[in-house]
Design a protein around this nucleic acid. Structure first.
Lengths: 330, 330
DNA sequence: CTGAAAGCGCTTACAG
DNA sequence: CTGAAAGCGCTTACAG
């Protein structure tokens, strides 16, 4: 493939002015059907594709948005794919940036990206400083979507954490009275909300909470939280922050000779691909990550267009009951 | 923040020609130290950042590379981050595209991306058609890196699959004589190589293989491969394609009342974040995904610069022995 | 309905 | 050592 065809080449071949080509392609202006046909034929014949850099320069719109990822909690590829296809559908190209470090670092990096003017908007899938948006250039939109759950926030207050309530209600109906919550890091809004819902539901149903512990999205947090329990604690139901934590809880139980679900019921979150195959398989919350990514991107796109954010969306979370939850054995 | 400063604004403030600003910034031409100082001061004062679209148009270099992901096997974020930072270090911006569908679809999409001329190079982390590179525009480099393991291929023949050999040797030394390989899909070069190394090592050591089965990277493949075994099969050692398959194998064993590692030893691949917390914890292969991503990107960058690909790199795979492997109990 | 022309913000020969 | 000028490939008033 030699030199690439330009709109000028197309115009020459079609026997029209170069501006006519532009009008045909943009659908603006008023071009006669015959001229339009000739131009389109020439476009096809030359395999013409417009030079986006030139267009960007002229229109002062880059047509690009950036997505910023922090340390990943769980496989975000589906989320990225969802965000990417939403961006594409809206006529944007999506670029991904991975940013290590803490909130401060990440926020600075986002500001840098905003300053580069390569992007019309930036979507962050990791927590950012609350002051971020004020410091950004006014013509760059920044939307922070801490994680999947936070998208839910836009769909309705606390919709996100309702599975925690459902978990507890169901387990209580099975006969559980004693609960433990191994929570996620508090600077994740989703973790905080689950935490709140946990406490509120325990209180509302008059159940016993053995505590809220962990505050980390790791397997260690799960193991340690069980190791720290006094002998003879079971029966017990553990609401774990996610499936990784839940696996740690199950291991902690096994180490102490406590059976799951006989002695301890365990719930996770995220429906890891291994979770259906664990023994016992893990009760968890499945979330439609692709849709969550799509919605986050739609939120950014709405901001770019000065439209109100999409609202009234159906929840993306669905509880999947599996073998790790059952009535207490005694 | 109002209108953005251009090089012309900088020139005006510094009292020089606009071209001088360009020379100072590019380091080309010969500019006196005083003039350079004045320009740099003006740059800083105005917060000037060059318009990349304009530069791209003028230089006919976009400074962009694309990464294409297929259906993810396991969390590729670290790999993407590694690739991204390598790209950045080489002066490129990396863009990510997720592509669903089969090899055919993916290859077409890559060709489309190449045709868009938005990218100087494209790196695919999923299998592509062998004919792909011939059909691509000659000025766009395309590098396919099926997955982490394939990067190893560039680092030395079969370096990738050597852990399979090490697994088998170690297990044989522990007293295992009967093996089963639950393999990955054959169109993944990495799966194919492990398969070959498995067969060759079994043969070389005079061991017994109960078969090569599965050919899928799923938990079901693991469960089914154990369900299909005749009663009384153990003791046995299973080399699973990855940790997800291995978890399926462990579940299959549990369903049949076979203990791990007493009756069946199991090895995985990828060191999932849950793997250290399984009960028993899973012996597996840890790979430095960030480095693998970096190397894949370096391969693309070398291709862009018409340099030979980097060579002689240390292996990225490391076996982690855990509880799922032991001497057969009888 | 169509064309000639300006200009987006750069880089880079070229002339001085 | 520095500046005036052309041109990358588009879009969009503007004139006809």
């Amino acid at each position: 493939m030699g030199a690439r065809a330009t709109s000028r080449d197309v115009a020459r071949l079609a026997g029209v002015a170069q501006s006519t080509v532009s009008y045909v392609l943009s659908g603006k202006g008023s071009i006669s059907p015959e001229t339009r046909q000739r131009v389109l034929r020439a476009v096809k014949e030359l395999g013409y594709q417009p030079n986006l850099a030139a267009r960007a320069m002229r229109t002062r719109k880059t047509g690009r948005v950036a997505v910023v990822m922090g340390i990943p909690i769980y496989n975000p590829v589906h989320m990225l794919a969802g965000a990417g296809s939403a961006a594409e559908a809206a006529g944007y190209v999506m670029e991904m940036h991975s940013v290590d470090g803490n909130i401060q670092d990440r926020s600075e990096r986002i500001l840098e990206l905003a300053g580069s003017r390569q992007y019309e908007g930036i979507l962050s899938f990791a927590p950012t400083l609350p002051t971020l948006e004020q410091n950004a250039p006014r013509d760059v939109s920044i939307v922070t979507s801490v994680n999947f759950d936070d998208d839910m926030h836009t769909a309705g207050e606390l919709a996100d954490a309702t599975p925690v309530e459902a978990f507890i209600e169901h387990l209580a109906a099975l006969g559980h009275t004693r609960f433990l919550h191994v929570a996620g890091p508090p600077h994740f809004a989703s973790a905080q909300r689950r935490n709140q819902v946990y406490a509120a539901t325990i209180e509302r149903l008059g159940l016993v909470s053995l505590g809220i512990v962990g505050y980390d999205w790791t397997g260690e947090a799960g193991v340690e939280s069980i190791r720290a329990l006094p002998d003879g604690t079971p029966p017990l139901a553990v609401i774990a922050a996610n499936d990784l934590v839940a696996v740690g809880v199950m291991r902690g139980a096994a180490e102490r000779g406590w059976s799951v679900p006989g002695d301890i019921s365990v719930t996770g979150w995220d429906n890891y691909d291994v979770s259906p195959f664990l023994f016992p398989s893990l009760t968890t919350v499945d979330n439609d990550r692709a849709e969550a990514g799509r919605r986050a991107m739609l939120r950014l796109i709405a901001a770019l267009r000065d439209e109100p954010p999409p609202d009234g969306l159906a929840p993306l979370n669905q509880i999947i009951w599996r073998e790790s939850t059952a009535a207490p054995s005694t």
